[in-house]
Design a protein around this nucleic acid. Sequence first.
DNA 1: TGGACATGATGAGTAACGCTCATTAATTTT
DNA 2: AAAATTAATGAGCGTTACTCATCATGTCCA
Lengths: 261, 261
Amino acid sequence: MRVPQGMTDPLPRRQIYRLPRAQRVADIMLTARAVFREKGYNDAVIAEIAERAGVVEGTIYRYFAGKRDLLIKVVEHWYEEMLTDYDRQLEGIRGTWNRLRFMIWRHLTVIHDDPAMCRLIFNELRSGPEYRETAVFELNREYTNRTLAIVQDAMDSGEFRTGIPLRIVRDMIYGGVEHHIWAFLRGEGNFSPDESADAITDIIHRGLVRPGAVIDRGEQVIRRLEELAERLERASGQTQRLQNASGVATEISRTTGKASC
Amino acid sequence: MRVPQGMTDPLPRRQIYRLPRAQRVADIMLTARAVFREKGYNDAVIAEIAERAGVVEGTIYRYFAGKRDLLIKVVEHWYEEMLTDYDRQLEGIRGTWNRLRFMIWRHLTVIHDDPAMCRLIFNELRSGPEYRETAVFELNREYTNRTLAIVQDAMDSGEFRTGIPLRIVRDMIYGGVEHHIWAFLRGEGNFSPDESADAITDIIHRGLVRPGAVIDRGEQVIRRLEELAERLERASGQTQRLQNASGVATEISRTTGKASC
DNA sequence: TGGACATGATGAGTAACGCTCATTAATTTT
DNA sequence: AAAATTAATGAGCGTTACTCATCATGTCCA
């Protein structure tokens, strides 16, 4: 037998609070961020986000096109927040090595401070087919371009040698960092942003910097021999070329020997 | 009105073929590989794999613990296949630069030849929590260790400076490659394994090689000329020339050695 | 003050999908 | 030929992202 239809408790539905759109969106995004952080994208459940945000599932779909859209918005918001003050900090740093080091260190530090969020970006967001339409993509582009500008400046001034595509430099830096922090992102082990930044900057810098002001004669000879070898390799298949190349090598090496030191 | 229960067609169930376990597993894995390649992990549907393999969903779960397990088995199989002949190829290459270049080039080539499969590894498999228990993880370890052994050898011989953690070198190489091929994996644009390998090897090598001042210049010249000789030998494809090339190298080294400081 | 209106919020319902298991039938053993 | 074994089936279940008809609340205006 049920409770008779008295005045009391005809509708067990709880009080509904209506909030302005902006407030609701902010609430949901904050909760979603927390849940995504804790569970990752796949294991995060919309129902839980809804409950913790104090709404019902349908409400979320009123403001977000779907789970994926929610992820994107959450990450974009975090990313924009994260990039604040970036340029101002960089402005205060002089010297190619220091500036490069700062960019690398900053990147490492962001990851170190919020691995869960970075995991979302690296593992989930960036795999998706819509990544290029994302604000994160565009912001990231600008961000890495700032690093490349440092390299370009150094090339222009003669400090770095030219001929290395900037794209490769970018890949080595950011790819290297990413690979480096991979285990940490998975919760295995730790790393020091300072030490890692030193090591990575070191390799990159040495890989790009022009050898000592005076290029000795030996270096010149070797370079020309190497170019020659490349040409021979490309045109290889002909045995008779080898003979020739060896002959040339011998001849030049004599010069080198004399001129080195 | 239904068909009366005559002798004809009482069970519309099709003929069931029972295959030996190994055969079934192979069939399913082959089909699964195709579907995963076409759709990616998330969009691949077990029902489709079953249908295309000529079985029913339940059959797949008889041989695989779940969708994830199926992915892992499929990728492991591909990976093992892919690593065949690896060591034998490397054995035939001399000189630090060339050996490094080969490792990088090989990696790039694998990706270039089967991007869909690599996408599965990079985006899906490696994100999962069970990656470290995977055979792919272990194989990958060995694979990268071979690269690090090359670097270590160069450090031992004095060709590379020491003090840079090998881990960082590994990160720069493999992270750099990965970042480099990212757009390609997403189906945006292309890349040349040859050119990319040259550029990446170049930065890494220069980043690690000991500056001329420390090691004596003559030694450096000799080493690089020796590498040159090796390259020329390979380019010619003639074994008998080896004698000749070695002779030249020796001769040069004598000259250089005398002249160096 | 009260009724109309716009819209925030609800929650029951749907489709898709991974996965399970009792049942069926092909194959082997006795 | 019967019994035992086990590959294979397919109906069904639980979960989860997502939809939509309905309801409730705050606002505006007569």
